[in-house]
Design a protein around this nucleic acid. Sequence first.
DNA 1: CGCCTGACGTTGC
DNA 2: AGCAACGCCAGGC
Length: 112
Amino acid sequence: MSIEKPNYFDWVYQVVREIPSGRVSSYGAIAHYLGLKSGARMVGYAMNASHTVNDVPAHRVVNRKGLLTGKHHFATPTQMEELLKSEGIKVKNDQVIDFESLFWNPATELGN
DNA sequence: CGCCTGACGTTGC
DNA sequence: AGCAACGCCAGGC
């Protein structure tokens, strides 16, 4: 199928898929890693479509503040935090605890 | 074809 | 340190 269209989404999906369990990433980090430094919104956009494409752990992707901004876009507004908690990530008031420590940077983890 | 919105981020005040 | 406005880019109408 003619995937010559904007691979932006695909790039995001693959990076998000590389996120290990118990870890979280941010839109800006992925965007920056893909070269979309200011395209953090595009990453979130891709995430929205991701749920219609394949298994993309979008729940492991949060904003720069560690807030579950996209939880409202899941099957249920509690799905996201439940998934995170299920992976050992503590969530309080829609915010990831120890977000800095759980932060997974593709540019650092993937290195290249 | 043009305007608006959007799962963000950064800078300015 | 907290709040507001702007910027980026693509998709939907």
